[in-house]
Amino acid sequence: MSRVPSPPPPAEMSSGPVAESWCYTQIKVVKFSYMWTINNFSFCREEMGEVIKSSTFSSGANDKLKWCLRVNPKGLDEESKDYLSLYLLLVSCPKSEVRAKFKFSILNAKGEETKAMESQRAYRFVQGKDWGFKKFIRRDFLLDEANGLLPDDKLTLFCEVSVVQDSVNISGQNTMNMVKVPECRLADELGGLWENSRFTDCCLCVAGQEFQAHKAILAARSPVFSAMFEHEMEESKKNRVEINDVEPEVFKEMMCFIYTGKAPNLDKMADDLLAAADKYALERLKVMCEDALCSNLSVENAAEILILADLHSADQLKTQAVDFINYHASDVLETSGWKSMVVSHPHLVAEAYRSLASAQCPFLGPPRKRLKQS
């Protein structure tokens, strides 16, 4: 649940008159999402009104509101027999009622949201009550392989729920002597030191190019640089560091992050930047690179990204790559990247197969709970 924001200063709310007192009302909304995959969808019983329910879910471990999704594969009634019906059901509720908006969509073979439908307002739910769409999607369109909505005969539904909580009022009075504290510009100011090479005390040599930097900042941000300058190493004695395995453009992006906490060109060089972040123990930059690479996972590059993640101990990226390969196994196994990995990294192939087997055979063990970014 997000923290209630402070109200904007009255002088910034309007260029008009300023009242002596004010009130700011925040209506709290808890948002969460749920993904439900139905394997072997074409084998569902086709009687009209037949119901399939998901397991229950909530916004978190401490949330007492429990929900589930309900599907009628062949419609709810005679009117909707040519459609799939989809509903959000409130299973248990400690209150007399709650209000919530919802959005349903289908994830296609690429994991993209399609055929989205959402409620136009927050509906009133009581325990045992459901709301949804009797005519969510035509069955003939859903079952047509050309539309790519049932890869490997799996129907994957994605649901986003927004639950309306209580409202909170914050009130106060205006004073004539309003003090406005300026925003912190530390990142910009440190970035200026790097860009202008002011007050530098060490030189970093990268592929024949020299960059002036500040030992204190490098040591504070990177345990690797800290070790170089702290001990009686040649880098500490000469205040000069030779860097041979990072390209200059990648190095500059890494230094921008060290000084400012930002990497504006990360998406263009996420793979190389991940390697640099791993070498210099820049954990936050490493996770930022993992996130960017996750966003660009595809059938063509899944094997290469899995190898990269394994090489640099990028655990979150590795998990996402394995899950992606499992979901698109029939396509990924035909790529040149996968065939190369079979020869060069057989242990990763074995890991992917083990994960695929456990996903398809849940009876082999208890269900695993899916539970950071600093």
Rank of each mutant, 00 (worst) to 15 (best):
V224C: 14
A11P: 06
E118D: 10
Y259S: 01
F32N: 11
L293I: 15
E351I: 07
C68I: 07
K237Q: 07
V246Y: 08
M254K: 00
K53Y: 03
S105Q: 13
S92N: 09
S355N: 02
E145R: 09
N108Y: 03
F41C: 07
F133Q: 13
K339C: 09
K31P: 10
P10N: 05
V98E: 14
A19S: 11
C361M: 12
L142M: 14
E118A: 01
L157F: 06
L371E: 05
T200H: 15
N169V: 02
P94L: 01
E79D: 14
E183L: 09
F225I: 15
R284S: 04
G111P: 12
N174Y: 04
R221D: 08
N108C: 13
Y280T: 10
D323Y: 10
L317S: 03
L193S: 05
K66M: 09
V164N: 04
W131P: 00
N244W: 11
A109N: 15
D188V: 07
V224K: 15
T335W: 00
A302G: 11
C68F: 03
L218H: 00
V322H: 12
V343A: 10
N147T: 07
D77H: 09
K215I: 14
L293F: 05
I27N: 13
V71A: 02
K369I: 01
G16I: 10
E290M: 11
G208P: 15
S340R: 07
Y353P: 00
D82W: 06
E334I: 09
E253K: 03
N62L: 02
V206W: 08
L364F: 14
T56L: 01
S14N: 05
R3Y: 13
D63M: 06
E78V: 09
A309E: 00
V30Y: 12
E113H: 11
P248S: 03
A122M: 14
K262N: 07
L204Y: 12
W131F: 00
A263S: 03
E351T: 08
S355T: 06
D310A: 02
S2K: 02
C68M: 08
V299C: 08
D130K: 00
F104K: 00
I307L: 02
M117S: 12
E183D: 03
P346D: 01
D152S: 06
P366D: 01
I106Y: 13
L84E: 09
K31H: 11
A303E: 01
C203D: 15
Y259Q: 03
D331R: 03
T37F: 05
I38Q: 06
E183C: 07
E210T: 11
S105R: 07
H347G: 12
N62G: 10
H312I: 11
S58I: 03
L155D: 00
L86C: 10
P10M: 11
K238R: 08
G16D: 07
Y123E: 00
S313Q: 13
S226I: 14
L282V: 12
K81A: 10
P366L: 13
K103L: 15
N239Q: 02
N326T: 11
W131K: 02
G132A: 00
D152A: 10
D323G: 07
S295H: 06
A220L: 15
T56K: 08
A109Q: 06
F199E: 15
S162C: 04
M341R: 00
H328Y: 07
L90N: 04
G49V: 01
V168T: 05
K115W: 12
K318Q: 07
P151W: 10
V299R: 10
T175Q: 08
W338C: 01
A61Y: 03
L143D: 07
K252Y: 06
E247A: 12
L356W: 09
L333T: 10
Q120G: 02
E50K: 02
R124Q: 15
H214D: 12
S59C: 11
A213E: 07
E334H: 07
W67L: 07
E232V: 13
E112R: 14
P362T: 13
A216T: 08
L90W: 02
S313F: 11
P223E: 09
N40S: 07
S162G: 11
D271Y: 05
L186P: 04
V342S: 14
E113Q: 03
M178V: 02
F141S: 09
E253L: 06
R198N: 13
V332F: 09
A281M: 06
R185T: 05
Q320P: 10
F324L: 01
Y353A: 13
S340L: 04
C361H: 14
C361R: 12
N62W: 09
E47M: 03
N296V: 09
A292N: 06
N177V: 06
A116L: 12
V287W: 07
K369M: 03
W36D: 00
E47P: 09
V206Y: 15
K81F: 15
T56I: 01
R121P: 01
C294H: 14
S374M: 10
F133R: 14
C202G: 15
C205K: 11
E183F: 02
V343P: 10
E183V: 07
S6K: 04
S340W: 14
L297T: 11
V91W: 13
P7M: 06
K31C: 10
L306F: 04
R370Y: 07
S92C: 12
A19F: 13
A220C: 12
A321P: 00
I243N: 02
K31R: 03
A219G: 06
D144A: 04
I137F: 02
V287Q: 02
G208C: 10
Y259D: 00
E113K: 03
D130L: 00
D331Y: 03
K31N: 07
K134I: 01
F104C: 04
S313T: 14
P94A: 04
V91S: 06
S340H: 11
H231Q: 14
M13G: 02
E113V: 04
P9K: 13
H347V: 04
L76M: 10
Y87P: 00
Q209W: 14
Q26F: 13
R138D: 09
S55R: 04
T37G: 02
W338V: 00
K64Y: 13
T156M: 04
R185G: 08
C294W: 12
R138N: 08
L76V: 14
Q26T: 10
T200Q: 11
A281Q: 10
C184Q: 05
A116W: 12
Y280S: 01
K180T: 03
L311I: 11
T114S: 04
A350F: 09
P17L: 02
K237W: 05
A309V: 05
A350C: 11
P367S: 11
C93K: 07
S167F: 07
N239H: 05
Q320R: 06
